[in-house]
């Protein structure tokens, strides 16, 4: 059976969806990804959908689920590379993917995640300082 590979890069997990997802595959991805987040303790998930030409409400729900579930496991999700036609269609469909962060491409997505982690690190460092005093 087809599987979408999940790559671990530093603190992050990365998934590049290269095919148009059918339902089974999307559901598997959701399950696998959540497993992987929990196993690796990743701080961020990057999903590249630049090759995806259709995102319908089902697919949108899966993306939302992944973001929500990862959040519970303390990982931020960034969707990157959405095609203009897909973005316009999603807005018209009435699915603005609230709660999901987006970035133009993998590079910018990485930057965004790194910035988040840095902020968290600084906050933790600050917390540590305050406990010392």
């Amino acid at each position: 059976m087809d599987k979408i590979p999940i790559l671990k890069i530093g603190h992050f997990l990365m998934v590049a969806i290269q095919v148009d997802l059918y339902d089974r595959l999307a559901l598997n991805l959701e399950a696998d990804l959540v497993q992987a987040v929990s196993k690796t303790g990743a701080k961020g998930v990057l999903i590249d959908i630049s090759s995806v030409s259709i995102v319908d409400s089902f697919m949108g729900r899966i993306l939302g689920n992944i973001a929500g579930m990862s959040k519970v496991l303390d990982a931020d999700t960034v969707i990157v590379g959405m095609q203009p036609a897909v973005a316009i269609t999603l807005v018209e469909l009435g699915l603005p993917l609230r709660g999901v962060q987006t970035a133009l491409n993998v590079e910018k997505g990485m930057e965004l995640l790194q910035k988040k982690i840095k902020i968290i690190d600084e906050e933790e460092a600050f917390d540590d300082d305050s406990t010392l005093q």
Binding site: I79, A87, L90, P96, Q101, A103, L104, N105
Partner: peptide, 12 residues
């Protein structure tokens, strides 16, 4: 509003 939402979905 639609245009703004679509731009945000793209990550801008």
């Amino acid at each position: 509003i639609k245009t703004v939402s679509a731009t945000r979905l793209m990550g801008a």
